[in-house]
Design a protein around this nucleic acid. Structure first.
Length: 562
RNA sequence: GGCCCCAUCGUCUAGUCUGGUCCAGGACGUCAGGUUCUCAUCCUGAAAACCGGGGUUCGAAUCCCCGUGGGGUCACCA
């Protein structure tokens, strides 16, 4: 079966990121919808790496994107082999555009021969000047082939001179038939003769996309709405090349809560603002690192368009106490969101099942398989949506609640293995298992699971007592917390086994015998264990610490205020 | 600025194509109560929207027009 034959009866979608950084959350949604459409139709989902920009692309970034997709559970049928996905059973690869030069050259030749692709010799500076001139006259700059253009002469000149290849846009308006937006027309006057081959011989994005989509038998092109303006150009190219048009579907954009575009630059912005407000840090930074590092930093501080690599941003953010906005899939992973939750939330951004549950509520929580089965363009919205982190958190929280303790520990340890070595080193699996129920309902994301048990990571003699908590729960009252603690401390000695249930039973019994409420005893214990009036339930708190450390902390409080 | 897209609670949205069942439903968030050994969880309840103006129609959130607002895009980046 040839590619075109396949295209006629197969739904083929593709996700084509350019490897310039981690996978953006918006890109993840596009990939998800592409995969869902293909799966639901029994078709194929292609992953292609768009690395025609030699300066910005990197293999590391490409690998990172594959890893991000794999973490989300989005597998691909045709594409680079990694994480159990990919391969080239249809023989439509390679899947990196930088390896497809000969293919593009073939189609360049075809267009040149037809006289619709032509060399152009303006330098970038000259073009910039032309744009400025147009702007001064308040008209839009449109590059158009001169009417007295001599194709043969231009080709001759091109043999010896640097040039780009441009596509002669055919006259007449072009209408895009979009599966979510309907028909959208663009006048010829708005469409210029776009560059299809760069000076360095690489195709531009427009050309490579059109050729590759055709060669790979892509039947449905799903992408963000920011590409809508490119589509008429692509259609013109397809027609010139004799390709059939795929179905286009432009997905609504995803924005920040403040309405701005969700961009990787947001991270730089957050840190840059904080640095500028902090004179001390600014000076410290100005005096550390190598010369080149300092120069980069100075440039970054001044120029909003300059981005710093994540490895440099992260420590600065930590030092300044600012949290980086989550933009990339990797950010959500680090924060401790569950991949299936991210998928679920993403699916709802711009699409919805339009189904009610038996309780008359909108169906919002569903599995990946549900999306695969039910995804359709009719239910894709046209409106851009703001990314609601609170709602994502709530989803994640619910999913964490729904986990069995073992499941939770598994997820937690998996996360910690990558992001929190100290946690793994300090707590064994049995302890985590015991802690799980208490921690689960206090953590919306895995990264927060440590907070309610922070006291476990402190040395017994390093507890800092909160003055208010001490005043309220330890020194005040009749009997005082101190006295209760003293009495119960002895009782604690004989608790066997030293596990949550036994401890709680002992505390309960002890309080009953003394005629006090459990709360009266629990609070001073909390202060002794954590320095504050807040901790997980008593039994778990004490059991996790272990008898020795508990008694040491009781003694220390007694000594400090007794 | 040109071109293009969009417009329902603070946010995500159902309802819009096939006008009436919508004094607009759900979720997140917010607020108020309740349960609880703290913090949480959990339970109950409340406030909260059809951008404005004209049409069409017996009737418009739903159809049409004009405004207004928001966004995208105008590279030898993708």
């Amino acid at each position: 079966m040839t590619t075109t034959e396949l295209a006629q009866n197969l739904t083929v979608t593709r996700f084509a990121p350019s490897p310039t950084g981690h996978l953006h959350i918006g890109g993840a949604r596009t990939a998800l919808f592409c995969a869902a459409l293909a799966r639901g139709a029994g078709g194929r989902f292609v992953l292609r790496i768009e690395d025609t920009d030699q300066k910005r692309s990197s293999e590391a970034a490409a690998a990172g994107i594959l890893d991000d997709l794999a973490w989300l559970g989005i597998g691909w049928d045709d594409g680079p082999e990694a994480h159990g996905s990919g391969g080239d059973v249809r023989g439509v690869g390679p899947f990196e555009q930088s390896k497809r030069r000969e293919i593009y050259d073939l189609f360049f030749a075809r267009l040149i021969e037809a006289g619709v692709a032509y060399p152009a010799f303006e330098t970038p500076d000259e073009l910039a000047a032309m744009r400025r001139a147009a702007e001064a006259e308040k008209r839009t700059f449109i590059y158009r082939r001169s009417e007295i253009y001599d194709h043969a002469a231009a080709l001759e000149r091109a043999a010896t001179e640097w040039h780009v290849l441009r596509f002669a846009m055919p006259p007449g308006p072009i209408t895009v038939r979009d599966a979510v937006l309907g028909e959208v027309s663009f006048p010829y006057e708005e469409l210029d003769d776009l560059v299809i081959r760069k000076r360095d011989g690489f195709p531009t994005y427009h050309f490579a996309v059109v050729v590759d989509d055709h060669e790979m038998g892509v039947s449905h092109v799903l992408r963000g709405q920011e590409h809508l303006n490119n589509t008429p150009r692509h259609i013109a190219l397809m027609r010139a090349l004799g390709f059939s048009e795929p179905v286009f579907a432009h997905l609504p954009l995803i924005f920040n809560p403040d309405g701005s575009k969700m961009s990787k630059r947001d991270k730089d912005k957050a840190v840059r603002t904080a640095v500028k407000q902090n004179q001390g840090v600014q000076e410290a930074l100005a005096n550390s690192g190598s010369d080149t590092e300092r120069a980069e930093l100075a440039k970054w501080l001044k120029d909003k368009t300059v981005q710093l690599p994540q490895e440099r941003l992260l420590p600065m953010a930590e030092q300044l106490g600012v949290s980086l906005p989550e933009i990339d899939v990797e950010d959500f992973r680090r924060a401790g969101y569950l991949p299936e939750v991210v998928i679920n939330y993403l699916a709802l951004l711009g699409w919805n099942p339009g189904v009610k549950t038996e309780h008359g509520k909108d169906l919002e929580r569903f599995e990946r398989a549900y999306l695969d089965e039910h995804f359709s363009f009719e239910r894709v919205g046209k409106t851009a949506s703001k990314f609601d982190r609170d709602k994502l958190r709530a989803f994640n929280f619910d999913s964490i609640q729904a986990m069995a303790p073992d499941e939770f520990v598994h997820a937690w340890r998996g996360w910690a293995a990558r992001y929190d070595a100290e946690l793994i080193d300090t707590l064994d699996e049995t302890t985590m298992r015991m802690l799980a129920p208490a921690v689960q309902q206090r953590a919306a994301v895995l990264g927060e699971a440590r907070q309610p048990i922070a006291f476990l990571f402190m040395a017994d003699d390093a507890i800092v007592y909160d003055q208010k908590a001490v005043a309220k729960h330890v020194t005040k009252g009749e009997p005082s917390g101190l006295e209760l603690l003293q009495g119960f401390g002895e009782a604690l000695d004989s608790v066997e086994p030293f596990e949550p249930e036994a401890i709680e039973a002992a505390a309960q019994a002890w309080c009953e015998s003394r005629g006090t409420k459990l709360g009266k005893l629990a609070q001073p214990i909390r202060v002794a264990m954590t320095g504050t009036a807040v901790s997980p339930p008593l039994g778990v708190t004490l059991a996790a610490l272990g008898q020795d450390r508990v008694l040491a902390r009781v003694d220390r409080l007694l000594a400090a205020f007794g």
